[in-house]
Design a protein around this nucleic acid. Structure first.
Lengths: 251, 251
DNA sequence: CGACCTTTTGAACGTATTCAACCGATGTGG
DNA sequence: CCACATCGGTTGAATACGTTCAAAAGGTCG
C-alpha cells in the first residue's frame, strides 16, 4: 500500500478546483464528513467523488420520494428535513440534517429515494454519485470503512428515534430533541445553549410524534420551569442538567 | 493494515465446509441473503465470508448492547427480537428479524453493538466477520452492492417504523404489523394467513409503542370485527383486505 | 400595509394507559 | 404424575395524557 507512486496525484487539480471548487482537504467539515488518516494521494482520489455542488433554496426539495437514485449528498451548509409519506398522504418527519451529514442513503437499496429531503433554509450540498463512491471505496479501505460507519450510524440514530417515539413521554421527547440539537451545534462550533430553530412547531411535532399544539405548550412549560427561554424560533437553554434530568427520570 | 495474511483464505475451503457445512450456494435462503448473478468463483469466495455457524437457544442473546463488534449475523433459522436500552433502563424493541435477514449492523459505526439481539426461539445464524465482509466486498462489486443495499434497506425499514410510531393510531399500527409479518412469511414459503407469533404481547407492544393490554384488546377487537382469529399466539388472517383498508383510511 | 402563516393558549374530548382481578397455559419439583 | 408456581393473556373501570377545536395574537413576506 505504501509503495503506490504519486504520479497520478501530481497532476494539477486546478481545473477541477475551478469547476467545482472542490477541496475536501480544505473543507472545515472534513473531520465530520471524511475518514481520518487519509494521505495526500487518497485525499485527492476522494475529492474526485465530489462530482458537483448544488444550491437548494429554502423550501425546495433536494430530492423527492420516488426520484431515481444516483447520488448521496453531503450537506455543506444549511439545514434539511427528511420525511416519508404514507399511502394515505400523511407525512412523517424522519430527521433534521445539518452540515457534514449525509442524506439520500435511503435510495441505495431500491434505486429510488424512499423519502423527501427539503431545505429548511438555503443550503449547499456536495453531490456524491453513488457508483463513484462505491468504486473509490473499493480502492481506499479507509473510505469504505467510513461509508459503512455512516450507514451504520444512521441505523443507530433511527433506533434512537424509535426509542423516543415508542417509550418516551411528550416531555422527554422534546427534552431529548433539544439536547440532541444542542450537541450537534456544539460539534460544529456553534453555541450549545443559544440557537435558532429552522423548523416549525408542526415539523418538530411530526418528528416527535406529537401535535404542534403539544410542542408549543411544552415549550411554554419548559420556560415556566426555567429550563429554557423561548422566543418563537429562538431557543436559549438555561438549565441543561435539568433537561437531562427529565430524560433520566422514569415516567 | 500493511501485511494482512488473508491469503491464508486461499486455503481449500473443504475443511471449512466440513467443519461448518457452509454452502451458501446450496442454502435455500440464498435468494434472500445473497446477491444475484454470482459466478461459481465468486460464490466460492463469498462462502469464505461465512466463518462459522452458531446456535442460539430461545431466550439467549446473540449479542448484547456494548459487546465488542466483530461480525454481523445472517439468520439461517429462527426468530430474533432486536432491542435498545435507555439510560433509565427502559427497553424498546426495534425489530423482529427472521431467516435470511441480517442483524448486528448497528455495531459497524461504533465498534460496539448498539442494541441486543435475543432469540425468540431456537435459532441458527451464520457468523460473518465484518472485516472479512469488507475485504471480500472490495474484490466482488456485486457483494459490495448487496451489502450497501442491505444497510440501506434497514434504514428504509426503520423510517417505516418511525412513520408507524409517529403518525399512526394503535389500530393501524397493529394492522401494519400483522400485514408486514404476513408478507415476510409468504416470501419464505410459509402461509400468509396462518402463523404463530413468537413474541409476547408485551414485545409487540414495545415495538408498536403500545402497552400490552392495548395490544391484547386490539387483537380481540380485530377478532370481533372478523379480520382475524386469535388463539394465544396463533393468528389466522381472515380478511387481509380489511386490514389493508384499516391502514389506508385516514383516522 | 395587508394577507397569510406560525404560534400561543383555553376548554372539551378521546384514545390509550394504569391498576386490578382473573384465567389459562406452561413448566418444575416433590 | 400431579400440584403448584409462574408467566402470559384477557378484560373491566378509572384515569391521564395528549389531541382536537377554536380564537386570537404575533411574525413574515409580497
Amino acid at each position: 500500500m505504501s509503495v503506490i507512486t504519486m504520479h497520478a496525484a501530481q497532476r494539477n487539480t486546478e481545473s477541477a478546483a475551478k469547476k467545482f471548487e472542490v477541496t475536501c482537504s480544505g473543507c472545515n467539515l472534513r473531520e465530520i464528513c471524511l475518514p481520518k488518516g487519509l494521505d495526500a494521494t487518497e485525499m485527492k482520489r476522494v475529492e474526485q467523488v465530489v462530482y458537483a455542488r448544488r444550491r437548494i433554496h429554502r423550501g425546495e426539495a433536494l430530492f423527492h420520494a420516488g426520484d431515481a437514485f444516483s447520488a448521496v449528498y453531503a450537506i455543506r451548509s444549511g439545514f434539511f428535513k427528511t420525511t416519508v409519506l404514507n399511502d394515505d398522504g400523511r407525512e412523517q418527519v424522519t430527521g433534521f440534517m445539518m452540515s457534514g451529514e449525509l442524506v439520500g442513503m435511503d435510495g441505495i437499496g431500491t434505486g429510488c429515494y424512499n423519502g423527501n429531503a427539503v431545505a429548511l433554509e438555503d443550503c449547499e450540498v456536495c453531490v456524491l454519485p453513488f457508483a463513484l463512491v462505491e468504486e473509490i471505496s473499493r480502492e481506499i479501505p479507509a473510505l469504505q470503512r467510513h461509508l459503512h460507519c455512516v450507514l451504520s450510524r444512521e441505523i443507530v440514530r433511527d433506533h434512537g428515534v424509535m426509542m423516543l417515539l415508542g417509550s418516551m413521554r411528550a416531555e422527554e421527547r422534546l427534552a431529548a430533541f433539544l439536547l440532541n440539537l444542542s450537541k450537534r451545534f456544539t460539534r460544529r462550533g456553534y453555541s450549545p445553549s443559544d440557537f435558532h430553530l429552522r423548523m416549525t412547531r408542526e415539523e418538530i411535532g411530526s418528528y416527535l410524534g406529537l401535535k404542534l399544539e403539544t410542542v408549543s405548550r411544552l415549550f411554554s412549560k419548559f420556560q415556566e420551569e426555567g429550563f429554557i427561554e423561548v422566543n418563537q424560533k429562538h431557543i436559549l437553554i438555561l438549565d441543561n442538567a435539568g433537561l437531562e434530568r427529565l430524560l433520566g427520570v422514569k415516567h
